[in-house]
C-alpha cells in the first residue's frame, strides 16, 4: 500500500494489526472495528490506537472512543462508493481531530473531495500508485483555487471571496 499525505507519498507510521495478533505494549497500531472495545480496554499509555472502519459505520458506534483514537481509516470498497465521504464529514462534525484516512482504490481525481470532507491521508494499492504519481495527486489537489460549498475544507471559498470583493 502507498500513503499520500499533503500531496506526497509518505512512510506509514501506523501498523495494521491482524485480529489474531497480540496487542503490542507500544507503538501506533490500527485495529478492526470489531476489536476496538477490547483494544481500548487493554490500551497502554505508550500505544496510539487507530481503527479501520467500514463506510457503513454509525457514528454512535465510535462516539465514546473518539477522544482516545489517534486515527480512523475509512474503507472505500470501490472508488465510486461515496459513503466514506459522508462518514468523514460526520466524524469531523462529531469533533474527531486525529488523522482521518481514506483507504481503497481512490483516484487522484478524488483528492479534492477527500480533503474537502476532512480526510488527511489516502491509502492506495501499489499498482494504482504506480500509475498515478505524486505529480498527479498534487495537480488534483491544486486544481481549484476556490469552491462553492460552505463548511468543507478547500483552498478558498467563493462565497468569502465574493463578500470580501463586495466590501
Amino acid at each position: 500500500m502507498a500513503l499520500i499525505s499533503d500531496g506526497r507519498f509518505v512512510e506509514d507510521g501506523w501498523r495494521r494489526l491482524a485480529d489474531e495478533e497480540d496487542l503490542p505494549k507500544s507503538g501506533r497500531i490500527i485495529v478492526s472495528l470489531a476489536r476496538l472495545p477490547h483494544a481500548l480496554e487493554k490500551l497502554t499509555p505508550e500505544t496510539s490506537l487507530g481503527v479501520l472502519a467500514p463506510n457503513t459505520t454509525e457514528i454512535d458506534a465510535l462516539a465514546t472512543a473518539l477522544p482516545r483514537l489517534g486515527l480512523i481509516s475509512i474503507a472505500f470498497p470501490a472508488f465510486a462508493d461515496g459513503r466514506g465521504f459522508s462518514l468523514a464529514r460526520l466524524l469531523r462534525s462529531a469533533g474527531f481531530t486525529g488523522e482521518l484516512r481514506a483507504s481503497g482504490r481512490l483516484l487522484a481525481d478524488q483528492y479534492t473531495h477527500a480533503l474537502g470532507c476532512g480526510f488527511d491521508a489516502i491509502e492506495i494499492p501499489d499498482d494504482l500508485a504506480a500509475r498515478q504519481d505524486e505529480t498527479q495527486w498534487r495537480a488534483a489537489r491544486d486544481a481549484y483555487s476556490r469552491t462553492y460549498q460552505r463548511g468543507y475544507i478547500s483552498r478558498g471559498s467563493i462565497l468569502d471571496a465574493r463578500r470580501k470583493a463586495a466590501q
Binding site: F79, F85, A114, C117, Q149
Partner: peptide
C-alpha cells in the same frame, strides 16, 4: 447550481 457544483461530499452518490 452553485452549491451542487463539484460538491466534495455528494459527487459519488
Amino acid at each position: 447550481r452553485q452549491w451542487s457544483s463539484l460538491h466534495p461530499e455528494f459527487s459519488f452518490l
